[in-house]
Structures are given as C-alpha cells and as structure tokens.
Design a protein around this nucleic acid. Structure first.
Lengths: 235, 235
DNA sequence: GTCTATACAGGGATAGAC
DNA sequence: GTCTATCCCTGTATAGAC
C-alpha cells in the first residue's frame, strides 16, 4: 500500500523513472501527462500510480536522481581530462567542451554518437540529455518545496563545484595553478567556460554549433588562466 | 477588428500589459489564467481578448516589451556607475550590485524602496521585478517561436552586452582597461559579476542576501580586473 | 496477486456567446 | 459583464489476463 515503497517489480519502476525523465524533459512538468509517461514506459497508468503517489512525487524523485547522475558523469569527465594533465590548458578546454556536450546536447537520434562509451548508458538521460530535465526543474523552481530544491542543488551543482575545487587544489599543489580559494576558482572556471554556453542555449533548448562551443571554451580557459595560471603556464 | 491593433482606449491596453506582466511573472505562463489577468487589470475578460488575439500573443507581446525596458534600465545604471569613473573598481562593483537588484529583486511590498527614484516608475515590473517575467520566458523557451525568441534576445541581453562593450571601449581609450575584444570583455564581466548570482537565485525565485550579492560582485570585479585591468589599476 | 486496459468523476482552462 | 461550450488532465474505479 505504500505509494512510494518498493511495491511491484523493480524493472517496472526503472522503466517508469526513465520514461518520466524523457517526457518531463521533452514537455516540461505541466505539459507532461501521466498518460504519456505510462505509454513511454510501456506500462499501465495504474502501475505508475502504484509506484509513485502522484505526479509531483514522481517529478521530484526523477529530479533528484538525475542530479546525482549528472554529478557522477561530470566527475568522470573531470578525472579523464584533468588527471593526466600533460597539457593543462588543453585539459581545461577538453573538460569544458565535454561537459557542455554532456549537459546540453539534445541527444539527436540521427547521430548515434559513441555507442561503446562507458558511463553514459542506462542513465535517465539516454534520450534527451540531462539538460532537458534540468530545464524542466529550473522552470518549476518557484513551485518546488525549499528542502527538495536544496537537496537538488546540493547533490548536483554544489557537489560538482566541490569536485572541481579538489582537482584545482591538486593542480595547485603541483605548481600548475595559483589559487587562494579553490572553491572560488572552481566557480569562476564554471562561469567562464560553461555558463555562457548554457545561457546562450537556454540549457539545451536551442542548439549551439560545436565550433562556437569550442571558441567559448578556449576564450574562457584563457581568461581563467590569466586569473589563476602559474607564471610558467600563463605565457 | 484587428486583434492586436490599437482598438480601445490605450490606457486599458497599458493596464492589461502591466497586469499580464505581474500575473505571468508570479504564476508562469501555463499557470496564469486570463481571468486573473483581467481581474488584475480591472477590466473585463472580453476587453483583454479585444486587445490581444489570445494568451500566447499577449505573453509574447509583454515579453518583448519587458526585454526592451530592462535593457533601458540597465543602460541607465551603467551610465550612472561607469561614466564618472572616479574609482573604476568601485564603479564596476556598484553596477554589478545595482544590476542584480534591478533584475533579481522580488520587489517585496514591505520595503517601498526608493519611491522618488527616476526611471523605475510605470514600467512593467512595478511589482514583481523583471526577473520574474524573465523566468517565465526562460521556462517557455522551447515553446516560443524561433523568430520571437531571437527578437527577445536581441532587444534585451544582446543589446545590453553591446551597451557594456561601448563603455569598456571608452574606458580602454582612457587607459583604464586593456581590452582587445570589447564584446568578449563585456561577456566576461557579465558572467563573473552577474550570472553567478542569477544562477544561485534561479533568476530571482530564491532570495540571495544583499551581503552575498556584494561579496560575489567584488570577487567578480577583482577577477575581471586581473584579466582586463590596466597595470596601474590592477594592483 | 500484480499488471493491463478502459472508462469515469471532478476540476480548471481557453475562448466565445448572450 | 456573465454565462457557457468544449476540451484536457489528474487520479480513481471497474473490468479482465498472466
């Protein structure tokens, strides 16, 4: 009887959350219908209500899950681009570009992308990208309970800033960066290399050409290194 | 008979657009009802449909008007803070703080603010702020015709970037800034001093303490001056 | 016993009619 | 200015199927 409990087959529950991410991302919270979510999941509407008390509960559950998933995916990209650091500037540019692609790409079906890429499979954003769901959340921010919104921010953006700050501290210890406040440096890097693209594309709603993504990422990294680059690297 | 023509008393039309800005900003596009807009304007619902063909037309009309108004208001703030420029750093900080207040403040009724302040009266954002309407537009971005969205961006954010770039070029000519690409510098200033606050507050939906706005503005200006400050100013 | 399919009650919205 | 036609959506109830 527990509405949000573990009733029913877990595979059905996963199909519902995945379908909800697709439909909420595509239509937004208010326009999305529970009928459409049930159809996308290949499940009866009654089954949806068997696993989730109502539309809002389903949306908030999917939002929190997506936030944590995107943080993990971003942390993997960070490690792949910043840990080797044979070329710091190139690593910072690569991470900016890959992050923009991961968050903002619409996941167009015409381009299969890299099918064998690990870490990107089975997540909530198999079709539509995390950006679409993030847009739906931002659109409903005024109607989301404060504690849930705080949990979403903490599990996603804030945790990612912490991950990035840890990397910057490690780079500073190796003499490649000069940072007093690693958290501030992480925020400035994110603003200079990512938020310009996010804002221009309205968090993935409007496509931005790859060429321009690369241009903005390079300009952002150059500005960041003027603030925090070690003298040897800055030149 | 022209739906969007100048039928009816212009005062009624202004009352409708102002009411629409209030209600759309408060409730968002989908949740806002034409009944509530008519009631807020103090006119009959029939009068609303007499001036605007339908809900979408009204929304897009108000969006474009608000975009142009916010651009003018921001340009005034820019001139007031950056033209004297007895202290460049202080001027850049003041503009960042005033801009954040103008865009993101919820216009709480308990604080009458500065009643005699010129330029802020009679606009669409008398109650609720331009940020609230901007949030409603961003929430509906996927459902707005591409040409209208482009016009909104051009009349608001892009025009403001151009205004700021012109100021930076003047400051560079006076030897206070070092900029190769004034447009890029304007974008970096906006990112470093404004977008962090906008994102943290979700474009005005969640309040940010004045103290923190000031802190972020100062840190952003310091970073900006490390990139573009003239050597005499940078120290 | 859980899932599917469908039908239905209740509320609210837009847009038009009187 | 009020009143109403029409549609859509959430959430529930009623059937039967693996």
């Amino acid at each position: 009887m527990a509405a949000t409990g573990g009733a029913g087959r877990p595979e059905k529950r996963r199909a519902i959350t995945r379908a909800a991410a697709v439909v909420f991302g595509r239509e937004g919270y208010l326009r999305a219908g529970m009928d459409a979510i049930a159809a996308e999941a290949g499940v009866s509407k009654r089954t949806v209500y068997n696993h989730f008390a109502d539309k809002e509960t389903l949306f908030l559950s999917v939002a929190l899950q997506s936030s944590a998933e995107l943080r993990e995916r971003t942390r993997d990209l960070m490690a792949a681009c910043l840990d080797p650091a044979v070329d710091l500037r190139q690593g910072l540019v690569d991470f900016a570009v890959e992050r923009a692609r991961a968050v903002l790409s619409a996941g167009e079906p015409g381009t299969p992308g890299t099918p064998g890429e690990p870490g990107g499979q089975g997540g909530l954003a198999a079709h539509g990208g995390h950006g679409a769901l993030g847009r739906a959340i931002r659109a409903e921010v005024a109607n989301i309970p404060a504690d849930v919104l705080e949990a979403w921010v903490e599990a996603g953006p804030t945790a990612t800033l912490r991950d990035l700050a840890a990397h910057f501290e490690a780079l500073a210890a190796r003499g490649l960066l000069v940072v007093e406040d690693a958290g501030l440096a992480a925020e400035q890097y994110t603003l200079l290399t990512f938020h310009g693209i996010a804002e221009r594309s309205f968090w993935g709603a409007v496509p931005v050409p790859d060429e321009e993504v690369g241009r903005i990422a390079e300009a952002g990294v150059d500005a960041f290194l003027r603030i925090h680059g070690a003298p040897a690297v800055r030149s």
